[in-house]
Structures are given as C-alpha cells and as structure tokens.
C-alpha cells in the first residue's frame, strides 16, 4: 500500500469517526443540543473540511499561497458561522 493510499484511508476513517460522533452528539443522545455541544459540532464540521482539503484535494503538497488561501477560507467561515450561531 502506497503512502498516498494509506493517508487517504486514515483521513477517511477519521472523517467517518467524527461524523458518527457528531450524529451521536446531535441526534443520538438528546433531542436538543446545548449551545456547547452545538459549537463542538460546528468546529468538528470545519475541521473536517480542512482534512478533506488537505488530504483528498491534495493541498498538503500544493504551493504555499494556495494552501494559505484555503486555510483562510476554513478559519474565516468557521469564525463567521460560530459567531453568528452562538453570540
């Protein structure tokens, strides 16, 4: 198994695990999320987008400015969404 294949599989496992955890936090345990749980779910979501960009879209080997631009998108909209949702 090549490194790329292994990295993709690890990323996928991680993403699926976080998805299932979010589902458990959101729908599985209680019928309503508290603000703290909801903010954790939102942070998880944007962390997942970052993993998708880095591993699947192969940004980890892309030129630096592009990587920075993508990171900026993740951070900017995570902050915007977080403050709109919880402040």
């Amino acid at each position: 198994m090549s490194t790329t294949v292994r990295r993709c599989l690890v990323a996928w496992l991680l993403l699926v695990a976080v998805t299932v955890l979010s589902w458990y936090l959101g729908g599985g345990s209680a019928d309503r999320l508290g603000p703290l749980t909801a903010s954790v779910v939102l942070v998880f979501a944007f962390a997942k987008t970052w993993v998708v960009g880095r591993e699947f879209m192969e940004l980890r080997s892309a030129p630096r400015p592009l990587r920075r631009a993508f990171d900026a998108w993740v951070v900017l909209f995570a902050l915007l969404c977080g403050s709109l949702a919880f402040l």
Partner: peptide, 14 residues
C-alpha cells in the same frame, strides 16, 4: 455537504 449537514441538521436544532 459536511458543513451543510452540521448547520441544517445539527446546529439548527440547538
């Protein structure tokens, strides 16, 4: 979809 799922299904319910 990852973000849409979190926003529409989970965060919206909080």
């Amino acid at each position: 979809w990852i973000v849409l799922f979190a926003l529409l299904y989970l965060v919206a319910g909080s």
